[in-house]
């Protein structure tokens, strides 16, 4: 015969401990993830972070509920039905979200470019997870569902668009930005053979936070076929440079 402690108090305490542990795991994950995954599209990062958090909490909740002696198969069924329902209800949204992910990677336009798709043309003023907003010459806003970009041919009519490479960079807030930029430009100078000399490398600060800067490096290449090679080479240089600068800063602080 279980004592009231074993029957009621113990499961509740275990439930609370699992919830607490889940919270800690989720918190630590977010902390590590933000610190580790600074380079890349902030939107993709946000989605990965959110999905991972939901998974952590779902596992935590299932384990916790099991401690209370409730039937978790029912809970799993409920979660499954909710998931399937959500997927069916939000098919279009999910399709757009998926398209957004692929368009980030494979469709060559960005905010500020002028594009033409499906009889619409205009300047891209916003790319959100569901749609891409164009400002037409008549000052009308046209919202294009992202899913259209993987179905229909898109024409980027921005002059020189094929030449442009934009490389996102994240550096710690303690980095000496003028020195970083100066060293970056010196590194890029070594690739000048492959770059359009009429365009200087331009570093733009997209976001300034206390702990980090989000920067974008814009370059113009001569040969579109070399785009991936150049991007990867410059990314490698940037990684080396940020590492060197980080070490230097650490040494200075020490």
């Amino acid at each position: 015969m279980d004592t009231p402690y074993e029957q009621y108090i113990m499961p509740v305490v275990t439930f609370a401990v699992i919830i607490l542990v889940t919270w800690i795991v989720s918190y630590l994950f977010n902390l590590v993830f933000v610190g580790w995954y600074r380079i890349g599209m902030s939107l993709v990062r946000l989605h990965v972070q959110r999905i991972a958090t939901i998974v952590i909490w779902s596992v935590g909740l299932i384990l916790a509920v099991e401690q209370l002696g409730l039937r978790i198969d029912l809970l799993l069924l409920l979660i499954g039905i909710l998931g399937v329902g959500t997927i069916i209800a939000a098919t279009d949204v999910l399709r757009n979200l998926a398209a957004k992910y692929f368009s980030d990677v494979y469709i060559p336009f960005k905010t500020g470019d002028t594009i033409r798709i499906s009889g619409h043309s205009g300047k891209v003023i916003e790319i959100n997870p569901v749609s891409t907003v164009l400002l037409t010459e008549n000052e009308e806003l046209v919202s294009i569902p992202n899913s259209l970009f993987i179905k229909e041919p898109t024409v980027n009519i921005t002059p020189q668009a094929w030449k442009e490479i934009t490389i996102p960079i994240a550096v710690g807030g303690q980095v000496d930005l003028p020195a970083f930029e100066s060293r970056l430009i010196k590194s890029i100078n070594k690739f000048k053979l492959h770059l359009d000399e009429r365009f200087p490398p331009i570093l733009t600060v997209k976001r300034r936070e206390k702990n980090f800067y989000e920067l974008v490096l814009t370059l113009m290449i001569k040969e579109p076929s070399k785009k991936d090679e150049i991007t990867s080479e410059i990314n490698r240089k940037i990684a080396e440079l940020t590492e060197q600068m980080k070490r230097k800063e650490k040494k200075k602080t020490a």
Partner: peptide
């Protein structure tokens, strides 16, 4: 724009903007 000293030119301008 492609001389190595361009990095110094950029450095000064960034220092000013900062």
């Amino acid at each position: 724009l492609w001389e190595k000293e361009y990095a110094d030119y950029t450095y000064y301008n960034r220092l000013s903007s900062e």
